[in-house]
Amino acid sequence: MAVATRSVQRTRWIKLQVFRYITFAAAAVFFLVPIGAMLEFSTRGNTGERTLAYWQSIFSYPDLIDFNFGPAPDAAINASLELALITSVVMLVLLVPTMVWVRLKLPHLSRLVEFICLLPLTIPAIVLVVGLFPMYIWLGTNLSDSILTLAFAYVVLVLPYCYRALDAGLGGIDVKTLSEAARSLGASWFAVMWRVIVPNISNAILNATLLSVALVLGEYTIANNLLYNNLQVELVHLGRANAGVSIAVAVASLLFAFLLLVLLAFIGGRPRRARPEAATALAGPLAASQT
C-alpha cells in the first residue's frame, strides 16, 4: 500500500516537473525572443550581414541627439534626459518634506496625501492628457512653450511610484523620535530634514529617483498628445523613416532602463513586506504610462 502511494506520488512529481519546465521554457521564448530580435534587427545590414552602421549613425540625427544640454534642448534624447532630471528633483523637493511633515505634525492628513498620491494610478494617462491639453495651451501662450514644461505633468505621473518608495523608507525609521532628538539639540527644521531624515532614507530616495527617471524616459502618451517630441515620440517618427536606427536607440534606452532597475533591485536588497507590496504593485500598471 505504502509502496503504491509512493509510486503515485512519484509519477505525479515527474508530471509536475515536466509541466513546470515546459512552462518556463515557453515563457522564456515568448519573453526573450522579442528583446533579442531588437538587437538582431539593429545590427542587420541590407544584405543580411552583421553591421553596426545603425548604431553608429545614431549621432547623425540632430532631432534625436546633439550636444545642447541647455535650457532649450532641441533634440529628443537631450530633452528626455533633462526632463528626467527636473522631474526627479521637483518630485523629491515636493514629496519628501511634505511626507515628513505630515508624519510629524499632520497625521490626520496622511490618508488624504496617500489618496492623492495614488490617484494617478486610477486615471489613465490618456485621460489626464485631455485635461492637461487646455492648460498647456495656456502655459504655451503665457509662460513658456518649452518641452521642459512637461516636467509639471511628469511629476504627477511619477507621484504614486515615488510615494510608495518614500513611504516604505519613512516607515522603516522613527521619524518622530529622530526629529525630536535633533530639535531638542537645537537643529533647525532644515537641518532635521537635510542632515537627519534624508541620510536615513537615502535608499528610498534613490529608489524613487530611479523609478521616476525610468518612467520619464519611457513616457510617450502625454508628450505625443501635447505635441512635444521627447525620446519615445521621436523614436516613433524615426521608426517610420529608418527602422534600424530607431530600434537601435530603443535597445539602448531599454538597456539603460534595465540598468536602472537592476541598480534598484540591488539597492532595495532589504526584504520587503511581501503581501502589501504585491497588493499595491497591482495597481501600478493601471497608470498605463508605459503601456
Binding site: 538582431e40 519615445q232 530600434i247 530603443a250
Partner: peptide
C-alpha cells in the same frame, strides 16, 4: 511595466 514604443518595436523586429 514594459510597454509602449519599445514593446511595439520588439514585436516588429521579431
Amino acid at each position: 511595466q514594459f510597454g509602449g514604443v519599445t514593446l511595439a518595436f520588439a514585436f516588429i523586429a521579431s
